[in-house]
Simulated assay, not measured.
Amino acid sequence: MTPLNINDFVRDLYATNEFIPLHAPTFCGNEKGYVTQTIDSTFVSSVGKFVDQFETQIEQITGTGKAVATVNGTAALHTALHMAGVRAGDLVITQALTFVATCNALFHMGAEPAFVDVSEKSLGLCPKALELFLQEHAVLSENGAVHKKTKQRFQAVVPMHTFGHPVELDELQAVCSKWNIALVEDAAESLGSYYKGVHTGTFGDYGAISFNGNKIITTGGGGVVLCKSADSGAKTKHITTTAKVPHPFEFYHDEAGFNYRMPNLNAALGCAQLEQLEMFIDQKRLLASQYQSFFKSSDFEFVTEPEYAKSNYWLNAIICPDKESRDLVLQETNAAGVMTRPIWQLMHRLPMFKNALRGELAISEQIESRLINLPSSPLGIQSL
C-alpha cells in the first residue's frame, strides 16, 4: 500500500479536495445561540448559569460525584494532582508516551515525573511495567511508597487514556492500592470512553478531561476535574476559585488557591457541544471502522479499542511496519494536504525531563518510531 492510496481514501471519506485537518471542531447545534445569550447577559466570566449547567451535564455523562470546570485541561490536571496530595519534591509515575501537558503540570508543582512503559493493548500505562518499576525503585514505609535511595514519596500514578483508548484500570488500581499510591487519571482525550461500562476518569482518586479546540467536544479552551464525592468536589471547587470564603462583600481567602474557573462564555459553547456528544462519538466510531477495514489487508496495523473498552476514537492511528515507512507516509500525506502526525516525542527525550527516573521503555520506543495519527474529525457533519 502506498501513501497515495491513503490520500485518496481519506479524500473519499471526507468528500473534499481541500486541505483535511487532523481534527477540527464541529459546530452544528446551539453554539451560537448559547454564546449570544451569554454575551447579552454580560455574565461572560466565571459566574453564570452555563458554568453550573456544564458541570451538571458532565456529571450526568460520566457518572462522577462532582465535576469542577476549569480554564483548560492542564489546570484540571494540576488541580487533580494537588487534591490527590502531590507536593513539591514528590515523585509521580506516568508514561513517557504522553503529551507534554501531563509533565508540565508536575513541573510547575515542583514534583518530578518517573516514566514507566506503556501497554501494547491500550497504548497507556502498563500495570505490569508499573509493578516491576515499583519493586525495583520503591519500598513501603509509614509514609507510603518511597524511593529506596532518595526517600522521596511516590505520591501518585498518572495513566493517560491515549487517543481515547482506556487503560487497564482494574490492574492499575490493584497496583496503586498495594503500594498506597493515589491514582489520578489523565482523561484529557477520553470523554465518552468507557472501561467495562464505566466512564474513564472516574476510577482514580481524581480525573481530568480537556476541552481544547481539537478534542471530541470543545469549550474553546477548558477542562474539568472529576471528583468521586460531593465533599471532595466542594473542596476542589473552592481551591479553583482562589479559595475565597463566601460572603456578601468581604474578601477572605482561607488558603492559597488557584484562579482556574472556567468562564461562562466557554461553558456556553461547551453546553451546546455536549448536546451533540453522542452523535460525534457515533460518527467517529463509524470513521474508525472504515479505517480499520481499509488497512485490514495492508502492512499497516490500525489501532483499535481494547476488548474491555468502548472508545471514543478521538484520534485514529496506525502502526507502520517501520520508521522508514512512517516517515514516507508523513511526508507524502502532508505534502498532499492530508494532515497526519507522528505521536509525541517521548518525554525523557525533552531537555527538561531528560534526567527523570525511568524504567525500561521498549514498547514506548517502538510505538514512537512507527505510529501515525490520521484525520479524525467526525464524518458527515457540517459546521454552522
Rank of each mutant, 00 (worst) to 15 (best):
C320I: 01
N334A: 12
T340R: 02
F294H: 02
F294M: 01
D322E: 08
K323M: 06
E307V: 07
A335W: 06
E301V: 07
W344F: 13
T333Q: 08
D299G: 13
A335E: 10
P321R: 09
S325E: 14
E305P: 00
I319E: 09
M339L: 14
P306W: 00
F295K: 03
S325C: 13
E324W: 02
F295R: 06
P306F: 00
N334M: 11
T304P: 04
V329G: 05
F300C: 12
S298C: 02
F294P: 01
L328T: 11
A336F: 13
S297K: 15
F295V: 06
Y313M: 08
S297E: 15
N316H: 15
Q290V: 03
S289D: 14
Y308N: 06
E305T: 03
A317C: 14
I343M: 02
P342C: 09
N312Q: 09
T304R: 09
C320H: 03
V329H: 06
F294A: 00
A335K: 12
S311N: 10
Y308T: 08
K296F: 03
L330F: 08
Y291F: 10
S289C: 13
Y308V: 05
P306T: 00
S289G: 13
S289R: 13
T304D: 07
L330K: 01
L315F: 12
V338A: 03
N312F: 12
K296P: 05
T333I: 02
Q331I: 10
N334K: 06
D327I: 02
S293E: 13
S311Y: 06
S293Q: 12
K323P: 01
W314E: 05
A317R: 08
Q331G: 08
F295W: 09
P342L: 03
R326F: 08
S298H: 04
S297P: 11
N334S: 10
C320V: 04
S293R: 13
E307L: 01
A336H: 11
V338I: 08
E301W: 04
P321T: 09
T304N: 07
Q290I: 03
Q290K: 12
P321M: 11
W344A: 15
P342V: 07
Q292S: 15
N312K: 09
L315G: 04
I318H: 15
Y291T: 06
R341C: 11
Q292A: 15
V303S: 01
T304F: 00
E305M: 04
Q292R: 14
N334C: 11
A288L: 02
R341M: 14
A309C: 09
V329Q: 05
L328V: 08
Q331H: 12
S289N: 14
S293A: 13
L328P: 03
Q331P: 08
G337S: 02
K323S: 10
M339W: 13
A288Y: 01
Y291P: 09
Y291D: 06
I318C: 14
K323L: 07
L315K: 07
Q331L: 13
Q292V: 12
A335P: 06
P321F: 07
V338N: 03
R341I: 11
L330Y: 04
K310Q: 10
W344M: 15
L330T: 02
V303A: 03
S325D: 12
Q290R: 12
Q345T: 13
V303I: 12
